[in-house]
């Protein structure tokens, strides 16, 4: 089933506040076997010019996965999740995510298209502090493989 082009621009209510913790950043860096001290050692992070430990460049996926679910589960979008694979991912950092950030995620449908029977849905998630400072923009393209 082709996705409705009229969905482009649809935005969803902002998420609850996500508080970024040092332990969560350390857990994520460990899952990438990344020994960089700026992820775990506040003193090393300060020496590099950051107020606290920062998160790896792909950490924002933790928040964007959750925020993107509202799109995937939107019955009017009608995406068949059993056929979905992750096609593309982009992170644009306005500044590094760091421990202590209190972030709100807002999802918007950026693009829909159907190519050779495959539905492609691009969701943008804007991450900002609860005070409104932009921190990171993620774009996720999901592909629902055609059954033809």
């Amino acid at each position: 089933m082709a996705l409705d082009a009229g969905l482009v621009g649809r935005s969803y209510p902002p998420s609850a506040v996500y508080e970024v913790g040092r332990e969560k950043i350390a857990e994520f860096a460990a899952a990438l076997a990344d020994p960089d001290p700026v992820y775990v050692d506040p003193a090393a992070a300060r020496a590099a010019g950051h107020p606290d430990v920062i998160a790896p460049p792909t950490f924002a996926i933790v928040l964007s996965l959750g925020a993107g679910n509202v799109v995937v589960e939107d019955p009017e979008v009608g995406l068949d999740y059993s056929r979905v694979v992750h096609g593309e991912q982009r992170f644009t950092h306005h500044r590094p995510i760091r421990a202590g950030d209190r972030l709100v995620a807002t999802a918007t449908i950026d693009a829909v298209k159907t190519v050779a029977g495959n539905d492609m849905l691009t969701t943008r998630v804007d991450l900002a502090t609860e005070d409104g400072e932009p921190v990171c923009t993620t774009r996720s393209m999901l592909v629902a493989r055609g059954t033809a």
Partner: peptide, 28 residues
């Protein structure tokens, strides 16, 4: 995203500061 996260380590290690990566995009 695990593959993408491991791959960008080559960039952060080279850059010296992971905060220097301002944009990162991949196609799977």
């Amino acid at each position: 995203m695990l593959t993408a996260g491991l791959a960008v380590r080559a960039v952060t290690a080279w850059a010296g500061d992971p905060g220097a990566v301002v944009d990162y995009s991949v196609r799977f």
